[in-house]
Amino acid sequence: MSLGDLAVSPGAWVAPAVEWLNVNLHPAFAAVTRAVEGLLGGMEAALLGPPAWGVIVAAGLLGWWLGGWRMAALAAGALGFCRGAGLWEASVETLALVVVAVALSVLIAFPLGVLAARRPRVEAGLRPVLDVMQTVPPWVYLIPAVMIFSLGPTPALIATVVYGIPPMLRLTTLAFRQVPREFLELGEASGAAPRTILWRIELPLARPTLAVGLNQCILLSLAMVVLAGLVGAGGLGAEVTRGLTRMEMGPGLRAGLAIVAIALLLDRLSRASLDGRRG
């Protein structure tokens, strides 16, 4: 018996499983694709509809509201750079992908994270899953995603959501665990309902750690969205991929800088909105 026979080959059973899913759940996947494309299309239309300078000014105003004139300058500057580099459409596509992916990640990770903080068993069950999700190289997610949803923004979005969930979930659990026991007692002793304790006591106390989780989720999602240029997700990732395949330094570098600008924009705005001076 050769060593080759002993080698573990998960692909041997993953591929047929995906095949089976494809055959039997095709209508469901098609519906997911339509929903994702609708969502992304809407976001993009909202950002591409008005002239670019309008969006840039709006971003500046948002930045000013969240963190004063420095934030305003940063937000407007970042988008202005994307426009100036001639990458407006690609940048907007990437932005839309990231925003939608992060929203979905948070929607899934937050309740699960809270549940895990309350129920040690749930946490014990989730931990190995999260470990695997975080150690598998990100592009590996893309393979089954593409097999199911074929090329395009949908597999990119799904892979990004999967990739963004673990940091958000872990830090949500940590954030809620860190809430000192006496504050929960205060809530109970005051006669607060569990819902009131969650929103009025736990959430505000958990906010700084939640902000860290959201921040990681955003930056990892951005990295994944760029990587997803490989599978035809469009946006800045596609520009980078093109630069790579044609070995052209200029466009690749320009797209890379635009990605940095978007990363800065999302990072600072999300931080300011969560642990800013307001509230």
């Binding site: 000192p180 504050f183 007692e185 205060l186 109970e188 002793a189 005051s190 006669g191 607060a192």
Partner: peptide, 22 residues
């Protein structure tokens, strides 16, 4: 009923005070 009892009839003060910092 228990929450009402706590809210209206029994107040509590803690050693750690537990004032909400925000």
């Amino acid at each position: 009923a228990l929450r009402d009892m706590r809210a209206k009839h029994i107040g509590m003060v803690f050693q750690s005070v537990a004032l909400l910092p925000h």
